[in-house]
Design a protein around this nucleic acid. Sequence first.
DNA 1: ATGTCGGCCTTGGGCCGA
Length: 275
Amino acid sequence: MRLATWNVNSVKARLPRLLEWLAEAGPDVLCLQETKCPADGFPAAEVGELGYETAAHGDGRWNGVAILSKVGLEDVTRGFPGEPGYRGESEEPTLLDDAGALPPPPPEPRAIGATCGGVRIWSLYVPNGRTPDSAHYAYKLDWFAALRTALTDELAEHPSLVATGDFNVAPTDSDVWDPAVFVGSTHVTPAERKALTDLLSVGFHDVVPKPMKGPNPFTYWDYRAGMFHKDQGMRIDLFYASTPVAERVESAYIDREARKGKGPSDHAPVVVDLS
DNA sequence: ATGTCGGCCTTGGGCCGA
């Protein structure tokens, strides 16, 4: 069974590349992030022509996740219990609850889970964090903590569990093209990396994919300044597999061909083959 | 690194988010 994850940076803008890639790579399950479209705007008919069922989660112009599957798509869950939302710093209180407190902000569409071919799989788009001193960064860490709790419960129910997507954290210094450039930036701070190891400690294994060229397993390269061609990238798209799934991993690779050519996403797909 | 994308509206240019 072939599983994959890909931050497509708008499913509408990427539709020709997505259809081309699905036909060529033929994953059984594809997790998508940054679809940037409402659930009812997802091109389900187009991917359906290639044999995929769709479960999408989205509410507007930002974020958005989805799962495509050729091997069944059951028990779809949008969001997870305890998932925090983002409260903007300048947001004015409108309706207070009986205790005079602000109601919690609604979660953003960043997580969707489903059972496909006997594997419980989550497509995740972790908040970016922007800068370590911002409210967005605190939100990112809160989101990770809530995710860890939710996946602990998921694992108890589903031994074959995958959590994959755009984690917006580079696990180690060798997962960024130049650690010196990232000093003081988000994606590499100790607190973010601890969020990853805390998540792994629940019972996951980091399936590191093979780069098809060069030594670096990068999955993302900024559009600017020819960074892809200089291999100035990061590994931030991760594939966390529970032990029963990790034991079935035959190979894993980064499809850097999908980052080339006309109209690519700034992320490449990560492909994992299971026995 | 701030060199490019994508989405949206205040639309053929500017702003936000990454």
